[in-house]
Design a protein around this nucleic acid. Structure first.
Lengths: 149, 149
DNA sequence: TATTGTTAGTTACAAAATCAACTAATAGGC
DNA sequence: GCCTATTAGTTGATTTTGTAACTAACAATA
């Protein structure tokens, strides 16, 4: 019979990277989530769409999905809600009539400016626990983990 | 009017920690998720419950929820499914009759041994991209981010 | 020992994510 | 041009999660 804590030769749940990453991600997302939820009633995917459009300018739903690695059905529904709330508009893509070009309205841009400001401060506050070198290293390692496994 | 990519003084979405952490967590969880899902039809919370019982031995639902930071309704449902599949049993807690002591069955322990072995290898593989010092630093930083904000 | 407050866990209902099927447009042969 | 395969995006059905309300047990105290 298995004796807990004994047979687990060298597997330590508390250090398991997927577990740690999830804990950290959830904790780090929480406070900022309350901001976009509280101020604009947005869900995470809506904030992602908004921030991509704000950051990179006009793009199609596919572009956003590829960049943010979000499934197209989630994008589709987030876009509809943002459109209903007048944060973005769609216009036909002349080059490919299956797609639509998405673009923030002035209201959408105002929300983006507001939220990205909060995000910048929040990020600085999160990172402030670590030395500048460690911060840079952390981001580099996370980026590498995010890139295909 | 906002000119994308220009007004965003110093906010870089691609370096935003909550975003990066989420991407890394999702990517890092994916392959292992396929294992417990494929082999045992488990959901993430079920794997978490199983791994906590396997790692730390008999505990109550509350104990698991506290350690894993998972809401009690999720734990409750995960426990029920694990019980239905005969991976764990409940027995009354003599000291507090509101609680039940959860414990893996031999089948549950076998699944835990199997999965924790895979997890150990998988973790090593994930971490292998970094030097031992960087690995240790990464885990330390993640643990700190996970600990209350 | 009543009374009030708290806690462990479950359940019901609402919100959201996932998956499959679908439409409309494009792309690549042939 | 015509046929088939692929792609962008939407919709509906199913599954999973989240929120609130609930039961039963415990704890503190007057």
């Amino acid at each position: 019979m298995t004796n807990p804590g004994e047979e687990s030769d060298s597997f330590d749940l508390a250090s398991f990277l997927p577990f740690l990453l999830n804990q950290a991600a959830e904790e780090a997302s929480l406070a900022f989530q309350n901001v976009y939820k509280g101020r604009y009633g947005m869900l995470r995917t809506e904030w992602r769409v908004l921030s991509h459009l704000g950051m990179y300018g006009r793009m199609t739903a596919k572009d956003i999905g590829d960049r943010a690695r979000v499934h197209k059905t989630k994008i589709s529904r987030a876009v509809r809600r943002l459109e209903e709330r007048r944060f973005l508009t769609r216009s036909p893509d002349e080059a490919d009539r299956r797609s639509e070009i998405l673009q923030l309205t002035p209201a959408g841009e105002a929300a983006y400016r507001d939220l990205s400001g909060v995000a910048r401060d929040y990020d600085a506050q999160l990172a402030a626990r670590f030395s500048p070198e460690d911060q840079a290293l952390l981001r580099r390692m996370l980026r590498q983990l995010a890139d295909r496994g």
